[in-house]
């Protein structure tokens, strides 16, 4: 088994045992309930080099079914220092901002069952040599899934700690051979009123879109995510494919991705389009840069109970050692 560990992570900084056991409990319960296929669906057979990327138009065969629910199998773990308790599966999956399914925190858990995550394809376009529409299974082939425990900080000043499952975004992006003009990457969420009741209301400009600089996108912490707690992502958490950028506010971590676009100029992003003063393109977690209407200095930890106190928010959500070098020379107070 391949264990990747960045050089600056101490061996003592391991995934809390409680999280591990809780995940196993959930898997056991799911198995008992008949939710999981007996054999692991696609976690194990993956490995080695990447096969050639074949767009669907040229060869429409699907290789292996992407499980709609179930266990993701044996995962390589990428131990990470989060210094906090892992948030429960219950809280992670019942307190969501996914406006395509309603603007209430519990709306996505209630409404997202209408999302059809299979079959799923992603269109890649723009400044890259290899473009086209690809089946999700094809995109995932050759990538090794990793279990990554990340802090997650919402711009609304609440936070959680989530055991995501995914693979580095950069590993996939490189396979499209971006050109020298690819300075940015833009992502789009599915926009289908039939599956997503919320897009009938112009709360944001649909489809939801987000973007990163190419350097941010290539950073090993940026994770293309397909699961949490060792299971396929629940719909309300952005199934079947979402981004997790742990050093940025949660809205940057776009859900249910259907389009990836390599771009020369800074792409449009939904919250920035809605209110540029309140939501900048970078939106890095920064306790010193308040939201115009509320403080970002502290955060409320989900699941910590009625009598818990807020905790201090950390620059880059505590990932400054890993990502601060991306922003050398950039005034973070002006480029928020």
């Amino acid at each position: 088994m391949l264990i990747k560990r960045p050089p600056d992570i101490k061996p003592s900084e391991i995934t809390p045992e409680s999280a591990f056991h809780r995940r196993r409990d959930i898997l056991k319960a799911a198995l008992a309930a008949g939710l999981l296929p007996a054999a692991n669906a696609w976690g194990q057979a993956i490995g080695g080099g990447f096969p050639e990327l074949v767009p669907l138009a040229r060869e429409a065969t699907r290789h292996r079914a992407f499980p709609e629910v179930g266990n993701l199998g044996d995962l390589n773990t990428w131990p990470h220092d989060v210094e906090r308790e892992t948030t429960s599966f219950e809280d992670i999956t019942n307190y969501n901002n996914y406006y395509e399914f309603g603007t209430g925190k519990t709306d996505p858990a209630k409404n997202a069952h209408t999302l059809r995550t299979h079959p799923w394809s992603v269109t890649v376009e723009g400044e890259a040599d290899i473009t086209g529409t690809f089946a999700l299974e094809d995109l995932m082939k050759g990538h090794t899934l990793e279990d990554r425990l990340y802090r997650f900080r919402c711009v609304e000043a609440w936070s959680m700690v989530v055991p995501w499952v995914g693979f580095p975004l950069g590993d996939l992006l490189k396979r499209f051979e971006p050109t020298s003009r690819a300075n940015y990457v833009q992502f789009f969420t599915l926009n289908d009123a039939e599956q997503m009741p919320g897009v009938r209301y112009p709360v944001l400009r649909w489809p939801y879109r987000e973007g990163l600089t190419i350097a941010e996108a290539m950073h090993p912490l940026a994770l293309l995510t397909v699961g949490l707690y060792g299971q396929v992502l629940p719909n309300q958490n952005g199934a079947p494919l979402r981004l997790i950028v742990p050093w940025k506010y949660g809205f940057k971590s776009i859900k249910s991705i259907v389009r990836i676009r390599f771009m020369e100029r800074e792409p449009e992003t939904s919250w920035n389009m809605a209110n540029a003063r309140e939501y900048g393109f970078y939106s890095n977690v920064n306790p010193d840069k308040d939201h115009p209407r509320w403080s970002q200095a502290t955060e409320r930890v989900l699941g910590a109970g009625l009598f818990s106190s807020r905790i201090p928010t950390r620059l880059f959500n505590g990932y400054a050692d890993q990502v601060a070098s991306l922003y050398t020379g950039l005034d973070l107070m002006r480029n928020y």
Binding site: N94, Y95, K105, W158, L302, G305, L306
Partner: peptide, 9 residues
């Protein structure tokens, strides 16, 4: 009171 009880109250 859900995942964020303080906010709920």
């Amino acid at each position: 009171l859900g995942a964020n009880p303080v906010q709920m109250v």
